[in-house]
Write a protein that binds this DNA or RNA. Structure first.
Lengths: 141, 141
DNA sequence: CATCATCCGTAGCCATTGCTACATTTGTCC
DNA sequence: GGACAAATGTAGCAATGGCTACGGATGATG
């Protein structure tokens, strides 16, 4: 093993890789509260099937996820009733939406067409630190 | 139901989420082949435990994922032997690394400090379309 | 108020990504 | 060549997120 020094440095790089499962779970939470907020805002209420159509998944997937987010105190649900946001969920939704808008506007100003900007901003928004968000804000000015 | 029109428009928005979900599937593959390439380059070989330390997960998780990527013809593995890249895996690794570098350089030029740029570029790189990548390249010039 | 369509919940399947605990292989050192 | 440590594999559990199939709840309409 000739390059031992190099191997010793490897561990340091694990920092950027947060646990994929955990990360995906909080991405879902952000997407859901944001969608619930938008749907209530635009249509007056948010139903399981609205979310299913919004995310293009089955109502079963939505139902299970909504139940989990209810347990996490982000949403309020009752069987066969519209979905509401908790205070905590509403705060997260506003923060996510704000960040999403900044990323979207940023990509458009960077010269990306609207369709691609919308797709990419959806994926990117969950991986943007406050420092990067600040840099995007500066660029927008 | 007064705001029916608004509800009818919801379906159209599912597109970005479908794309994001599809990308999640290949994220792991890209991270792994890129890591394997880097580890071979820097230390001469790539072992299961090297990847475990690199990603900060258990060797079991790595072992299982490596087996799957072997089935997908991206990696070559034999029990208790170093991990190698296939031609297909090497091509994907080079492409991923290139994209990763562009995103990282882009964030730094945007004014993000190196530490945050490294973390964010790792998450962002998987959600950048070719259009957005082109826009980043233009910005770098 | 009965019926029927729509909405939603539950059961139960699969894949991915995490883990611990335990078994096996490999390589090194005496 | 035996023993021991390190590396790797296997078994099996949990959480998340996808699905279909089926059944119960709700609300609108006759």
């Amino acid at each position: 093993m000739k390059k031992k020094k190099a191997k010793e440095k490897i561990k340091a790089r694990s920092v950027p890789f947060s646990q994929t499962r955990t990360r995906h779970a909080s991405e879902t939470a952000e997407d859901y509260v944001e969608a619930v907020m938008d749907l209530i805002d635009e249509t007056g209420e948010c139903r399981v099937l609205d979310l299913a159509r919004f995310f293009n998944v089955s109502h079963v997937t939505v139902s299970r996820t909504v139940k989990r987010l209810n347990d996490q105190d982000l949403l309020l649900t009752q069987s066969y009733k519209p979905i509401e946001l908790t205070e905590k969920g509403y705060k997260l939704a506003k923060k996510s939406k704000k960040r999403h808008e900044i990323v979207l506007d940023f990509l458009i100003k960077l010269g990306v067409d609207k369709a691609n900007a919308e797709i990419d901003s959806e994926g990117i928004e969950h991986h943007v630190s406050s420092k990067t968000l600040d840099a995007m804000k500066r660029f927008l000015k």
